[in-house]
Write a protein that binds this DNA or RNA. Structure first.
Lengths: 220, 220
DNA sequence: GAGCTAAGTGGACACCTTGTCCGTTTGCTG
DNA sequence: CAGCAAACGGACAAGGTGTCCACTTAGCTC
């Protein structure tokens, strides 16, 4: 989906090298995905495992490619082969956790899934995201490298979801509002509220839910 | 005000040392402010001027202490004497621009200043901040180094202001909502909406103003 | 206005991170 | 089991970070 996705993961999209062959032997043996070699797969798993630990036990912002490589027991170049920078490793790890929620938003029961009023769905979405942040804050902070955050596949997914809710509610010009509605979910903001201000997750959650219902109020 | 303020600026608030003395020799020879030397003042001005240019003409995130020092024509240690890192330089520069708005919020005419309904005041505040972002985006991006953003004096000011509006409107539990209400003003978000999505500032502004009125609606 | 003192200066140093290059190893295929 | 390309990992050069210390110089005192 995103760039990070293409670079960072790739369990399924390994056919990028195919392009090099040109038209000469185009559609013949091309589509046969050049499977990832076993050692590469193993290294990749080691990297992800080691990185997850690192992100948790030290300031996620200070995790470096060098350290990940050492912790995973692989060379630097090997690491670079799979990921362009530390944040893309965090993105890959987060992705797995986010995937479940993404399924629930589409196929799950209301209020998270379809069927409930837009305001209720937005409130439920906020609470689910808050739960995700609570459980994986280090990864979320590690993934958040400036503007790149907005270009991840996951963020794109949240955008599509929120847009649906806004349109469903009959908002005139939904597009500028999408990211405004998503902005309270910034990992850094959550960290500030939670650990700097000392607010409980429940209290933040209540505020967010009220906020969602107020934003998409039935009697507009 | 903030840490950055104490380190970064100080032209006006030089009486901070006074507090250290306690009651012993209080008002005697202490209050004599340890004036900044003329050459230091000059260097400081050079640094700010050079840095402002740098932030504008290259990616604000890639501005380095080394480059600022070279551009300003001073040694690295001299720079470090005034600022701990590049973002604190950006904060100092931004501060000057923000000060005017801060005055208007307190003493200015409605709807920015006191006198208008909370929803209108919040809408006006959003628009003013948007204007600030539009004009000084590079500085805002340079200042935004992770969680430090929330610890600047300016952010503290915005918090106090928004809290007043929320209380004024009769919100039950205003505190968690403060930062939620401020989150749409994140410089990175603005950059994404403006330059990645291509939304016009007017369109974002309209959305934000509607958003403010909806949030603090009269007929709650 | 000469001398003193400490604030201020700037170059150098040691350390760390980044990407990339390239000789070597290793899995897979026929 | 032989050959080839994918994958590996150590090494390298470039550049950034803070800090230290010998020096300069502003500003006070007499």
């Amino acid at each position: 989906m995103s760039d990070d996705e293409q670079r960072g993961r790739g369990a399924s999209s390994v056919h990028r090298v195919g392009g090099l062959l040109g038209d000469l032997q185009a559609a013949d043996d091309q589509p046969v995905a050049p499977r990832r070699r076993a050692d590469a797969e193993r290294n990749r798993a080691q990297i992800l495992a080691a990185a997850e630990q690192l992100f948790v036990e030290q300031d996620p912002r200070t995790v470096t490619m060098d350290r990940i490589a050492k912790a995973a027991g692989v060379g630097r170049a090997t690491l670079y082969r799979s990921f362009p920078d530390p944040s893309s490793v965090a993105v890959a790890l987060l992705d797995e956790h986010e995937r479940r929620l993404q399924g629930q938003l589409i196929y799950g029961p209301p209020p998270l899934g379809p069927g409930a009023p837009a305001g209720e769905r937005l409130a439920a979405f906020y609470l689910a995201m808050l739960d995700l942040l609570e459980r994986h804050l280090p990864l979320a902070l590690g993934a958040e490298t400036g503007p790149a955050r907005f270009r991840t596949g996951a963020y794109g997914f949240w955008r599509v979801h929120v847009r649906t809710l806004l349109v469903d509610h009959g908002i005139r010009d939904p597009d500028p509002l999408i990211d405004i509605a998503l902005s309270p979910l910034s990992p850094e903001l959550f960290q500030f509220q939670r650990h700097e201000l000392g607010l409980s997750t429940e209290r933040i959650g209540r505020s967010l839910a009220d906020f969602a219902r107020q934003l998409l109020r039935s009697g507009e």
